[in-house]
Structure formats: structure tokens, C-alpha cells
């Protein structure tokens, strides 16, 4: 099987890799670029644990081929914190205990940041529908929703 050479940008860094045409972006991030923050919960786009941003658009990295990353700009959970400073969402998720096992957390953080970047004042219903593609089996979503609403309120105050 001939490999494909891909040049892309991940969390601001220029990256080159080769991959099999069947490898997904998620496979590439985890197995070739050692970025294991994005998780495979289903491989079929149903759970959102692999959520990443591609050219500022929220996608499931399991539903995109690694080969398609050519020339794109990719952002993962690993790029959320800036140096020692956690993103406000990360702080609030810890503060509100918006995670139990934590496997869905990277995907939910990436998805939520995408929401707040687009809509700084979402209603609870808007948050719930935006996150409908991010399954969490531990929390019943209650504390996740609270953490998101609280972060949004803080960010609005700060801006």
C-alpha cells in the first residue's frame, strides 16, 4: 500500500507525516504524531470523543482521512492551554467536577470552545444541542452544562 505524504499544521506547528490512505486523521494524530488527547470512542462519528478543529470548523477526526489534512490547520485539546495557563473552560471543568472518568472531556472541551467562539451567550438549550454529538456516560451532563454556562458568563464579563 503506497503511503501518502502530508504537510499540515497542528496547534500552530508545521507537521509532516506519511500515512496509509485508509488512516483517519484521528489515527494519524494518535499513532503518528503522539497526540493522544483525541480519543476513539466509536470510530463512526457518534460519540465526539475525537473532536478537533480543522480550519476553524468542529469535526470528528475519525470521519476525516489523514490524507485530507494536507494544507489544513488543525487544533486539538493539546493546544487549548497556553503554556502554564489553562483555558478558562479547562479551569471551570475542574472546578465544577464536569468530568468523572475524563475520556469524553477532551472532545467536549474542543467542541465547547468552538461554541463559545461562535456564540458567547448561548442558552442552556443551545449548549445541550451543540454538545449532542459528544456522549458522556458518567455525569448526566448536568455539571458539564453548568461549567460551560459559567465559563461563558465569565468570558462575557472579561470582554
Amino acid at each position: 500500500m503506497s503511503m501518502i505524504h502530508v504537510s499540515t499544521t497542528v496547534n500552530g506547528d508545521e507537521v509532516d507525516f506519511v500515512c496509509d490512505p485508509r488512516e483517519t486523521l484521528l489515527d494519524v494524530l494518535r499513532d503518528r504524531l503522539a497526540l493522544t488527547g483525541a480519543k476513539e470512542g466509536c470510530g463512526t462519528g457518534d460519540c465526539g470523543a475525537c473532536s478537533v478543529m480543522v480550519d476553524d470548523r468542529l469535526v470528528c477526526s475519525c470521519l476525516m482521512l489523514g490524507a485530507e489534512a494536507e494544507g489544513k490547520s488543525i487544533a486539538t485539546v493539546e493546544g487549548l492551554a497556553k503554556g502554564e495557563d489553562l483555558h478558562p473552560l479547562q479551569e471551570k471543568f475542574i472546578e465544577h467536577a464536569a468530568l468523572q472518568c475524563g475520556i469524553c472531556t477532551p472532545g467536549i472541551l474542543v467542541a465547547t470552545k468552538a461554541l463559545l467562539d461562535k456564540n458567547p451567550d448561548p442558552t442552556e438549550t443551545e449548549v445541550r444541542y451543540w454538545l449532542a454529538g459528544n456522549l458522556c456516560r458518567c455525569t448526566g451532563y448536568d455539571k458539564i452544562i453548568r461549567a460551560v454556562m459559567d465559563t461563558a458568563a465569565d468570558l462575557r464579563k472579561a470582554s
Binding site: L35, T36, G37, A38, T76, V77, E78, L80, A81, L86, Q90, F93, I94, L99, G102, T105, P106, L109
Partner: peptide, 9 residues
């Protein structure tokens, strides 16, 4: 383990 879990680490 909060920071580990929110950073993907």
C-alpha cells in the same frame, strides 16, 4: 488529576 484530564495528558 484534573489538569491531566482536561489537557489530554
Amino acid at each position: 488529576d484534573g489538569v491531566d484530564k482536561v489537557t489530554g495528558r
